[in-house]
Design a protein around this nucleic acid. Structure first.
Lengths: 251, 251
DNA sequence: ATATAGGGTTTCAAATATAGAAACACAAAA
DNA sequence: TTTTGTGTTTCTATATTTGAAACCCTATAT
C-alpha cells in the first residue's frame, strides 16, 4: 500500500469535504508537516486536480473529478439512454423520477427529474444510500442470489430510517422474493416518513440488472386512488421495458 | 513534485481512458514494473477509487470520482439552482439548452436539456471546449479584463473549428467588447457548421460571472424570423436574470 | 513605524517508503 | 506436458519522501 498516494487521496477527500483549505489547515487535519502537504498539493495542482485561489491562497478541488466521473458514467451509457424516458415519465406522472446504479453496497443516484409538486427529498445526483434501504436498491438486490445478498450484509447493521424500515436480513430476503415475483418494488415510508416509492429494474442483453428507475411520491397521494397508482406502475414497467430494450434485453 | 502520486494519477487517467485494464497492460503503457503498478492499484482499490473484476482480473475506475465531482459541483449549487429554469427555457423554445462553467481555459458543460428537434451535437455533461471557441465561453470571458484574456491565451494557437471561427486574439477581444455591450453572445457557425448559439451570463452577489446558459439551434431556423429570435433572446435574458437573482445578483 | 504572528514556500540531510528484479501461483493455450 | 500469459508476493538497494528549519510574505497588534 503506497502511503504517499494515500496521503494525496486524503487531501483530495479532505478538500472535497471542506470546500477549500490552506496548506496549514490540511497539515493540521492530516497531522503531516506543512512542507509535505505543500509538495503533495503542488503535484495535484500540476495535474489539474486542485486549484489555488490567488487571493486567499487556499486550495480546492477542480472539476477534473467531475469530468472523469462523468466519462465513467457515460461509458456505461445508462444515463444518456435512460434520460429521455425519465423525462417522459416525469411529464406523464408529474412526480419525481430517479435513476440509480449499484456502487458496492450502495445505490448511487446518477440522474433525477424533480417534480415541482413533491416535498423535496434531498437526494441529489452522486448521492448514495444503503441498497437495502431504498426501493431502487431492493430492485437491484432482488436480481442477485440470496446467498450473495446475505454475504453482502453479514457484517452490517441495518439503519432504522423510519419505524417501517426493514431491520433484519430475513425480512429483507422476504421482501426481495416478493419483488422478484412482482417484477417491481413498492414501499411506503421505509426510508422517509410520508414518502412512497415504486422502483423497476433496467436489464441488459445478459438479462443482468444494470440500474433501476424509481418514482417517489407522498404516501397519501394515491391512497384512495388505486387505479391511478396502477396506471403509474404500468407506465414505469413500460419505461423499464423500453430502456432495457435499448440495452439489448429482449422479451 | 511527488512522483509516486503522479504515477497513481496516471493510472486513474489511463483507466478513465481505456475503461478497464489489467496490471500488465498498465505496466506496459506507463513503462513501469508490474509490481509497482500492482501496489499502486491496490492502494487505489483500498481507497475505493478503482475496482477489480473478479473474473477478468481487470481494474477499472469506480463511481467514486463521479461522486466526488458532483459534490464539488453541488457545492457551487449552480446546477441545482439553474436546472428548473433550463427546463422552462427548453419547454418554451424546444431547443437544446446548456449550462457551463469555466474550468481553467475551458468551458465545461455541467447540465443540458436536449431538444428532440435539433441535430444532436455531442457535447455531453462533463465535456469541455476551449472557452474562446464557444458562445458560453465568450460570455464568461467577456466579463474578464482584456489583459487577463490576453495573458490567458498568449501561448495558445486558436483552433479553426469552422471557416467562421475566431482565429486571433484581436478578433476575440473585439467580439468580447461586443458581447459586453449587448449583454449576451450570439454566434453563427463558429464552432459547428450549421449551428448557431446564444449565450447569457449568470452572475452572483459580487457581480461576478459564475456560469453561462446557452441555447443552440440550426442556423437556418430563425433566419427569416427575426421576431422569433428576439423573443428567444428575451427569454434567455430573463432566465439569466432570474438565476442570477438566486445568487444574490441585484438589478 | 516596528514587532509579532500566521500564513505559504523553499531548502536539505536523514529516514524510509518505493521500485523493480526475481520468484511464485495460476490459468489458458500449444 | 510445456509454454506463455496473467496477477501476486517478497525482498533490498536506491531514490524518494519527510519534516525541521529558515525564508518570504501579509495582516494585525503594539
Amino acid at each position: 500500500m503506497s502511503r504517499t498516494v494515500g496521503k494525496a487521496l486524503d487531501i483530495l477527500e479532505l478538500l472535497n469535504e471542506h470546500g477549500s483549505l490552506g496548506v496549514s489547515n490540511i497539515s493540521k487535519e492530516l497531522e503531516l508537516d506543512k512542507s509535505t502537504i505543500y509538495r503533495l498539493v503542488s503535484t495535484l495542482r500540476r495535474r489539474g486536480y486542485v486549484d489555488q485561489d490567488p487571493e486567499s491562497k487556499k486550495y480546492s478541488n477542480t472539476f477534473k473529478l467531475f469530468q472523469m466521473g462523468n466519462i465513467e458514467i457515460s461509458r456505461l451509457g445508462i444515463r444518456e439512454v435512460a434520460h429521455p424516458f425519465l423525462e417522459r415519465l416525469a411529464e406523464e406522472t408529474r412526480e419525481t423520477i430517479n435513476l440509480a446504479v449499484l456502487a458496492g453496497k450502495q445505490v448511487m443516484y446518477i440522474d433525477k427529474i424533480e417534480s415541482s409538486k413533491t416535498v423535496k427529498v434531498d437526494l441529489g445526483i452522486g448521492r448514495t444510500l444503503p441498497a437495502y434501504a431504498s426501493s431502487l436498491g431492493k430492485v437491484i438486490l432482488a436480481n442477485m442470489s440470496s446467498e450473495k445478498v446475505c454475504k453482502m450484509h453479514e457484517m452490517d447493521t441495518f439503519t432504522q430510517f423510519t419505524p417501517k424500515s426493514i431491520m433484519t436480513i430475513g425480512d429483507l430476503l422476504v421482501k426481495l422474493e416478493f419483488v422478484r415475483q412482482l417484477g417491481y418494488c413498492i414501499e411506503h415510508e421505509e426510508l422517509i416518513p410520508g414518502l412512497s416509492c415504486v422502483a423497476v429494474p433496467i436489464k441488459n442483453h445478459e438479462r443482468k440488472v444494470i440500474a433501476a428507475v424509481s418514482i417517489a411520491f407522498p404516501t397519501y397521494r394515491y391512497k384512495d386512488n388505486k387505479k391511478e397508482l396502477e396506471n403509474i406502475i404500468e407506465r414505469l414497467l413500460l419505461a423499464s421495458k423500453h430502456i432495457s430494450h435499448k440495452f439489448g434485453f429482449l422479451e
